[in-house]
Nucleic acid binder design. Structure first.
Ligand SMILES: [Zn+2]
Ligand SMILES: [Zn+2]
Ligand SMILES: [Zn+2]
Ligand SMILES: [Zn+2]
Lengths: 136, 136
DNA sequence: TTCTTATCGGGAATGGTTGTCAATCCCGAT
DNA sequence: ATCGGGATTGACAACCATTCCCGATAAGAA
């Protein structure tokens, strides 16, 4: 077997990516790319908006961050603690998020898909509400 | 008690709204506003794009049509047969949609929210896959 | 250090969606 | 039948999140 012709696509570690990660780690709620970019500027550790988008996309692809589509279609990002598959209970007011899992739902989705002859199954499940703090 | 000062917000019936409904009724899959607008033009029963958006928004508000957010954030619309709350099994290839319901999930969402002190609970749940036709 | 090239950044481009507002049309009242 | 006012329409501009572009920069191997 010939040696791999393509050298391991070295993923360089940059100040920018680290800065984005730092903001994510200090954030409890789901945030938009624009909000994260603004926070970086506020901290005096500015990163180009394009780079913020690129970083988040890459982290999302490698499952380092979770994404969530808001009603208006804007994408929100969050660095979750749990490493396994889970879902979210999100406050519409402040964005406070609780990680939850529903083992029953996972199986349900698989079975429903199989029953109708669908494969390559994925699913989205999010719960929205108003947290006790926002109820005042 | 004085008579109602605001006359019943009469919802007028127009050719445009009817045309949009006709397209929706002849469509099996979830479609975007742009696709629906294009189909209207193709049928020679053109309706302004703004009006298409307005009609769909109003029908969505009155639960006459279901909406679905695609990964890229574009909103899709479908006129479902079932009148009660349900979810969707959608083919990523052709958009073929099956209406399904998961009574267990409904209760699970409510309980999870309550357990964490959230109220005014809503949830989104969609299953995506590849239908047998698209597997061909 | 030097070289290769992944990465960055800022500005332009994209594209779905909403806002604007004069012209038009529904529909109940006359 | 006709009138009048308010809902509705539609062409176009504005909006805004996201992506594209490409010359400049800097990480990392040699
Ligand atoms: Zn998560
Ligand atoms: Zn809250
Ligand atoms: Zn439906
Ligand atoms: Zn299909």
């Amino acid at each position: 077997m010939a040696p791999d012709p393509t050298p391991p696509a070295a993923r360089r570690s940059t100040r920018q990516r680290a800065a984005v990660l730092t903001v994510l780690d200090s954030e409890e709620a789901f945030r938009s790319a624009q909000e994260i970019h603004l926070e970086l500027v506020r901290r005096g550790d500015a990163v180009g908006l394009s780079t913020v988008y690129r970083s988040l996309a890459s982290m999302s692809a490698s499952a380092e961050v979770d994404t969530l589509l808001r009603d208006d279609g804007e994408t929100l990002y969050r660095r979750c603690r749990g490493v396994t598959h889970h879902h979210h209970l999100v406050c519409r007011g402040c964005g406070a998020t609780v990680e939850v899992d529903g083992p029953t739902v996972e199986r349900w989705a698989e079975r429903v898909a199989a029953d109708h002859g669908y494969d390559e199954v994925t699913h989205t499940l999010e719960v929205f509400g108003r947290c006790s703090a926002c109820r005042g």
